[in-house]
Simulated assay, not measured.
Amino acid sequence: MLTVLLTLADTPPEDNDVVAGGWGALVLVGLIIAVVLLGFSLFKQLRKVEAADKAGVYGRDDDPVEPVDAPAADQKADDQQS
């Protein structure tokens, strides 16, 4: 198996073959590294946000906030202007 791979690696591409070459391989490896680093950074930031939320930095209570009805809020604003 290894000899087959080495034989294929040693044979140069023909003139009609389109290959990415060394630059294409470097770009691919660079993109993979960038995605991995971005993933680690994302998880690090998410852990910071979760820790800050547990510490109460955002000022949220454990109780969910009731949604405000838009027509009722508009009616209160109209009543106050009168």
Rank of each mutant, 00 (worst) to 15 (best):
M1I: 05
L2P: 04
L2G: 12
L2I: 07
L2E: 09
T3L: 15
T3H: 14
V4Q: 11
V4E: 14
L5M: 11
L5Y: 12
L5S: 14
T7C: 13
L8Q: 10
D10M: 14
D10C: 12
P13V: 00
E14D: 09
E14C: 09
E14K: 13
E14G: 15
D15A: 15
D15Y: 10
N16Y: 13
N16M: 14
V18G: 03
V19I: 13
V19M: 12
A20W: 07
G21C: 00
G21V: 00
G22Y: 04
G22D: 06
G24V: 01
A25I: 10
L26E: 10
L26V: 10
V27C: 04
V27H: 03
V27P: 01
V27M: 06
L28Q: 08
L31V: 02
I32F: 11
I32T: 12
I33D: 02
I33V: 13
A34P: 01
A34T: 03
V35A: 12
L37W: 05
L38C: 03
G39L: 04
F40N: 03
F40Y: 09
S41E: 10
S41M: 10
S41N: 08
S41P: 02
L42N: 07
F43I: 04
K44E: 03
K44I: 08
Q45H: 10
L46Q: 12
L46R: 08
R47L: 12
R47I: 07
R47G: 05
K48P: 02
K48C: 04
V49F: 11
V49T: 07
E50T: 06
E50R: 08
A51C: 00
A52R: 05
A52H: 01
A52G: 01
D53N: 11
K54M: 07
K54Y: 09
K54V: 05
G56K: 01
G56Y: 01
V57S: 06
R60Q: 13
D61R: 14
D61I: 05
D61H: 09
D61G: 15
D62P: 10
D63H: 07
D63R: 15
D63T: 14
D63K: 14
P64L: 11
P64M: 03
E66K: 13
D69A: 11
A70P: 08
A70C: 04
P71A: 00
A72Q: 11
Q75K: 14
Q75F: 13
K76H: 04
A77F: 15
A77Y: 07
D78V: 13
D78S: 14
D78W: 09
D78L: 15
D79N: 15
